[in-house]
Amino acid sequence: MNGVPLSWYLILSAILFALGAAGFMIRKNMITVFMCIELMLNAVNLSFVAFSRHFKTIDGQIFTFFVMVVAAAEAAVGLAIILTVFRNRSTLQVDDIDSLRL
């Protein structure tokens, strides 16, 4: 076999996406939860690049580029928010932050 079938890349992307989603729901530390979201976005990027290569056009790679930029912007704002939460609360555990519960 000379090349790698497209479906292998898609399956890998699905595995990474599922792991990211699972991690989002399991983990309790805010920063780790955010990193699981980044893992999900990386999985989507892989999917886009694989499709782009399949169609031999550049559109998928362009979308990857934009997903990267958006992830960077979200990371900047998200970490700033985590910083403010920490400043007022001194904890990073999602469970301990419960001033909004009924």
Partner: peptide, 25 residues
């Protein structure tokens, strides 16, 4: 409360954006 609201909104919002771009892909 504002900090916590922003944190929850961002985490869940980014999570759903991840699903949305997967659908787009």
């Amino acid at each position: 409360r504002s900090n916590e609201a922003a944190m929850k909104y961002l985490l869940l919002g980014a999570f759903s954006s991840g699903f949305l771009v997967y659908g787009f892909s």
